[in-house]
Design a protein around this nucleic acid. Sequence first.
DNA 1: CATTCTTTGACTAATGTTGACTAATATTAT
DNA 2: ATAATATTAGTCAACATTAGTCAAAGAATG
Lengths: 155, 155
Amino acid sequence: MEGQNISDVIERYLKTILADSEHIEIRRSEIANLFDVVPSQINYVIKTRFTIQNGYLVESKRGGGGYIRIEKVNLLDDIDVLNSLIKVIGTSISERDAVSIIQTLYDENVVSRREADLMVVAIDKSTYSISDRQLEDALRANILISLLNRLRYES
Amino acid sequence: MEGQNISDVIERYLKTILADSEHIEIRRSEIANLFDVVPSQINYVIKTRFTIQNGYLVESKRGGGGYIRIEKVNLLDDIDVLNSLIKVIGTSISERDAVSIIQTLYDENVVSRREADLMVVAIDKSTYSISDRQLEDALRANILISLLNRLRYES
DNA sequence: CATTCTTTGACTAATGTTGACTAATATTAT
DNA sequence: ATAATATTAGTCAACATTAGTCAAAGAATG
């Protein structure tokens, strides 16, 4: 049985609301109060249960009038392709390999020509101006994976 | 709902007016009174929400008959839009300002929604996993400038 | 019993609000 | 003209109000 811990309860609460509305906007402390937990527990729930892999997009703002917004997004069909490419990338990738991955995306009609061009720029060695090759490849992997993750869903 | 703080409310108020007129001329104290805030809050709103990155030009005059004038500039009328944006970016840019620039490009139909989304990902703080703020902002400037330069060429 | 998941709270970071002080410009008095 | 005064806006730092991070402690699981 799921739901024996408070994180599961909070998860269900939020997902119930999201079943009706496209998105939900909460005040962290309010939810924390509602379930009598510390505020950072809300972060834990979001981090473990509202990931992009699950089809949720989260954004937030601090300061007065701050909020956490959770949106249910429409996952696309190319997820398998993206997953396998992300696995290939790992934590480090050369510019050459990165370009060929982007080429694959273009060949598979996942991205347009122009989108592919922009992605190539974003992983280009010369734009980083980093001399350390390992750092460069690690950074490129981070950026490329983030880009691929963005392609999982629309709007 | 987004915009629970008074700064957002004032921002919306001013932008609503700017939707009709090319520019708006306000008396700082009047707006401050209207929303029951201290006058310097108006400066805060302008400084954070009506930057050139957002496509707004602000000028003011002190003394009797003083005013603050906000103008919506059409960056695309200028053939050197990209140049001026690149100049604004310089060697370092915050995530907030970078997002503003990309938003402007989208508003002005320079990039599609999807392209803008990908660009935002490419300048997102969380994709870099760098703890050094200065390095982060410098890297972001490099990447954003490269992306803008790529937009010069059509494909 | 080892491992993973959950809970907690101290500390950090981002954003917004306020007011005292400063600076610029215009108006009035001399 | 010049000086004094009034009338605007600008700056900056303190304080307020949110959310994020991280690691340690506790609980559950297999």
